[in-house]
Design a protein around this nucleic acid. Sequence first.
RNA 1: GGGGAGUUGCCCGAGUGGCCAAUGGGAACAGACUGUAAAUCUGUCGGCGAACGCCUUCGGAGGUUCGAAUCCUCCACUCCCCA
Length: 399
Amino acid sequence: MTVEEQLALLRRGTTEIISEADLAEKLKSGKPLRVKLGVDPTVAHVTLGWAVVLRKLRDFQKLGHTAVLIIGDFTAQIGDPSGKSKTRPQLSHDEVVRNVEAVSKQVYKILDPALTEITYNADWLGTMTFVDVIKLCSKYTVARIMERDDFTNRWNEHRPIAMHEILYPLCQGYDSVMVNSDVELGGTDQKFNNLVGRDLMQHWGQEPQVVMLCPLLIGTDGKEKMSQSLGNYISVVDSPNDMYGKTMSIPDELLDNWFELCTDVPMAEARQAIMSNPYEAKKRLAREIVGLYHSVEEAEMADQFFKETFSQRQQVVEAEDAAIPHDLIADGVVALANLIASLGLAKSNGAARDLIKAGAVSLDAEKVMDPFAKLQAIELDGKILRVGRHQFRTLRLAR
RNA sequence: GGGGAGUUGCCCGAGUGGCCAAUGGGAACAGACUGUAAAUCUGUCGGCGAACGCCUUCGGAGGUUCGAAUCCUCCACUCCCCA
């Protein structure tokens, strides 16, 4: 593959490469490049948003380059201020460990383990002395740090900026020095941090890394960047039905964006599909996504499930089992609202009653309208309880 | 170090002694319509209770009062101006 062809593959789905000439130069050398990606261990799921960058990283691997994942176990204690209007809460060590464990498995749904290197930045950041930190700080100026949007905005709006937050970009930049990366990948919100890496590398006499930025995926709410804290995400380990359903709930305006960032469907084809029938296009998108993280067969099943359950409003035939707690049964009778609450399908008994009143609760496809309904426990056994649009449980009476 | 302003429910924000579980907006959730889209309309939106009601909440701890988100004291945190 010529350098030009490689560039074409790598360019797809990026918004900016700083600089493309440098990248071409590095590719020309023919040696395997070290492509760095910072991993945020404050979350427990690889979301489709994050997958955008991971998929780009996999493109590099296809060309024989090495993915260098840096688990930000140290920086998690600071909290990346990128795009945040508030200081982030700092995580405990245990939480970080748990997240890393969960996430590292999910990452290999996309990446090739043979070409992946995993490092932890606590290994070098955690052992620095205060003198080391001061030396690092001396390589950068306050004015340059404050150029950053998040800081400028917060400053102008009189919102707090804690001292440790301005160290974040330096930490991340120093990571690049430590792994001597050739390329750093990131979302567009990482531009500032990644550029700091270039500066620092030069201070340490290294060739500056190329910075490649990928667009941010908008979440299922159609408004904000997909993120776990906002709950507008799809995880790569979501069940096929969930993945499919969540995709179907995105606004039409996002279709173009999602096809480009989440699938391998050629854009000309995708745009044609969206133009002719957005609904059909969205189902195609959902199938593509499920196919990517599960299988084509499961995608078809999810498609079928969706059609029957939501489009045709047929009775759900299969759902997760839920045992009816014994202590809710009095004289063989159970109050429906209490049952819904104790199964976690509503926040409280009151909320459950509100849902019933609103007509959101049904048993075997039959709406229950009485908020105080008391039902024979024996008769509930095996029935499918539906709360809201997408919560189902097969009730089981334990003997 | 000196002076000033502020901290209210998921978020923004009103409330300055009883009519405050606390106006309004946003978000969220549910229903109707539909394509689990958009737009629109409706309802819910601290907890318990069938209900009169009860309990917990307005940065934290005390106090004044029959009664406090509202007044006083101390503490913590944030922002602004000056140095």
